[in-house]
């Protein structure tokens, strides 16, 4: 579904991600671990196509099409969605409007309410996007927008950070829905998930994981095993391990 080949990404003229290659199959969930500043967000933003994250080498192929040069909105229309780690506040624009836009502009009040209910966001629909939102509300707002958008490929940048124990199961449920985890055979949606703590993995099953260190991929394998290893040896352990 997604192939990343020899990808190099620059931010403000500084190379952050170097020659990364990996792919995510149809229906698969890939976890991305890595310490602060290792380039995880940069990689996701580059896949989404945000202009500040400039691809200087390599390519991104989605559903067989080279999307490396495609603008962000066209990638969204092709079926890529992102949960931002730190989404901006958009003053004046109401949650209700952004959810409606994610639904493709269809004016369906009932659908919006229904989705908001799932995200426990009904009271927040008439607030300005991300304005004064708590940490948990930001995540739920991102997921609400994604559920409305219903992308085939979801980039999830730390959906579990800053989320309390009650909210995390809700966040997990929403991610499972986005990733069609209830389906066994006919699952077509895929995702790339960043987590530091791995808490979300108690709710969402992931298939594979890799570790991003110094802008490159150091390790690939089973998500739980890698998480256990990071927990016991830290990322220094990854740096010396040549698995």
């Amino acid at each position: 579904m997604l192939e990343v080949e020899d990808l190099t990404v620059e931010v403000e003229g500084k190379e952050i991600v170097h020659d990364i290659s990996f792919n995510v199959d149809i229906g698969e969930t890939l976890v991305l671990f890595g310490p602060n500043g290792s380039g995880k967000t940069t990689l996701l933003m580059a896949i989404m196509g945000l202009p500040r994250y400039r691809v200087t080498r390599g390519r991104i192929v989605f559903k067989g099409q080279d999307i490396t040069q495609l603008p962000v909105d066209e990638r969204a229309k092709m079926g890529i969605g992102i949960l931002f780690q730190r989404p901006p506040v958009v003053r004046g624009v109401k949650m209700r409007e952004i959810v409606r836009a994610c639904l493709g502009g269809r004016e369906d009040g009932a659908v919006i309410e229904q989705l908001a209910q799932k995200a426990n966001m009904v009271e927040i629909l008439d607030r300005e996007v991300n304005y004064g939102f708590s940490g948990g509300e930001v995540k739920r707002s991102e997921l609400l927008q994604l559920m409305a958008q219903s992308p085939e490929f979801v980039l999830l940048d730390e959906p579990d950070s800053g989320v309390d124990l009650v909210n995390i199961s809700l966040v997990g449920e929403m991610i499972n829905e986005l990733l069609q985890k209830d389906r066994l055979r006919s699952r077509t949606n895929s995702g790339l998930l960043i987590t530091h703590t791995g808490h979300i993995l108690d709710y969402v099953d992931a298939d594979r994981a890799c570790v991003l260190l110094y802008g490159g991929i150091w390790c690939r394998g089973n998500p739980r095993e890698i998480l256990v290893s990071i927990k016991s040896h830290g990322y220094e352990g990854c740096a010396v391990c040549q698995k």
Binding site: M48, L50, P51, P71, V72, D73, A76, K77, G81, I82, F84, P87, P88, V90, R91, G92, V93, K94, E97, I98, A101, C102, G104, E128, Q145, Q149
Partner: peptide
């Protein structure tokens, strides 16, 4: 760009922000 990541075109995104403003 945030709104564009949700599938709005650049013009639509600007329109939404201006309307909100």
């Amino acid at each position: 760009e945030y709104l564009m990541a949700r599938g709005l075109s650049r013009d639509q995104a600007i329109a939404a922000i201006v309307r909100g403003f």
